[in-house]
């Protein structure tokens, strides 16, 4: 089983639209939406949920004011400024600032502090018209999106093995921080979906640096390439110098948005279009069994 993650650095370059297109071409593949902060793949794949699981999020401390002596030690020692005096007296924890390190709980001289896992996160195993899909719903403002990504991926891998799938295709998050790191450790291939803008390029360069740290084979797609053909050319030569295989270039087309509005992949919405043909070529290239020599 080969695990592929789609990433972009910059948001909004078209990761999910392209993942959905690949999904309608892929045979014997399991899909995972690991952009747990802002998941959108389900809007096209329309999963039918078969199994719902709770994910234990970060702990959040609470102070029992019946027990608390207001000594202020926890407030002094908390490195996240999460503990404050209330206007009406007494100490309280700001759940949005608390990182769940439990330092306060451990040092409280009167054991007035306890901490519980947040139960606001769920992950799902579902069926879609293209195959099984794993996805998640994170509570607003949650702390541990990296860990939730890891959980979804681990279970997606298990599902893929159980089904004897050839591929696991992950729709990843933007950025290069903890969620992006969690979405690429140990995968077999990464596909970078980028767009020819200065910011798209800048963000792609940062993502490439991250992927190269992990020594993962990297492929690139330039989406909306005709927005700026000059930058698209610069990107192409940059990819060449970095040994990154360009899978293809996709022109800007409002039909990509119209397909989403109609809850379809571009392959389903415009099966005979130029874009559909190009995306087919790309999927064939990335799934070719023989690794090209770098």
């Amino acid at each position: 089983m080969i695990e592929i993650t789609i990433l972009s650095g910059k948001g909004g370059t078209g990761k999910t639209g392209i993942t959905a297109a690949f999904a309608s071409l892929a045979k014997n593949t399991v899909f995972a939406d690991i952009d747990v902060d802002a998941p959108d793949l389900h809007l096209i794949l329309k999963p039918e949920i078969k199994e719902e699981n709770q994910f234990l999020g970060a702990r959040i401390a609470t102070i029992d004011r019946q027990v608390c002596t207001n000594c202020g030690l926890c407030k002094k020692e908390c490195r996240f400024d999460a503990i404050h005096y209330r206007a009406e007296g007494g100490l309280e924890v700001n759940p949005f600032e608390c990182e769940g390190c439990r330092l306060c709980e451990r040092i409280c001289p009167v054991q007035a502090i306890s901490s519980e896992h947040s139960t606001n996160n769920h992950w799902f195993v579902s069926n879609t018209r293209f195959g099984s899909m794993l996805h998640a719903k994170m509570g607003p403002g949650e702390e541990n999106s990296g860990k939730l990504v890891t959980t979804v991926r681990k279970n997606a891998k298990e599902k893929a093995r159980e089904e004897n799938a050839d591929f696991l295709l992950n729709d990843g998050p933007p950025g290069v921080g903890c969620s992006a790191i969690a979405s690429l450790t140990g995968v077999d291939k990464v596909i970078l979906v980028t767009e020819p803008s200065k910011s798209g390029f800048h963000d792609a360069v940062r993502l490439i640096e991250l992927v190269q740290k992990f020594n993962i084979p990297l492929y690139a797609v330039i989406n909306k390439y005709d927005i700026n053909t000059e930058i698209a050319k610069q990107m192409e030569s940059f990819f060449l110098t970095q040994g990154i295989q360009l899978l293809g270039k996709i022109p800007f087309d409002e039909d990509m948005v119209n397909a989403i509005v109609n809850q379809k992949s571009i392959i389903e919405y415009r099966p005979d279009s130029e874009i559909a043909r190009k995306i087919k070529e790309m999927w064939n290239k990335v799934t070719e069994p023989i690794e090209e020599i770098k």
């Binding site: 948001g11 902060d37 802002a38 949005f96 600032e97 994170m138 607003p140 403002g141 949650e142 702390e143 999106s145 998050p173 933007p174 950025g175 921080g177 969620s179």
Partner: peptide, 14 residues
């Protein structure tokens, strides 16, 4: 702000 709805966004918006 960064994209998303998790801790970096909370930190920015707080």
């Amino acid at each position: 702000a960064p994209p998303g709805t998790s801790c970096p966004v909370v930190e920015t918006v707080s």
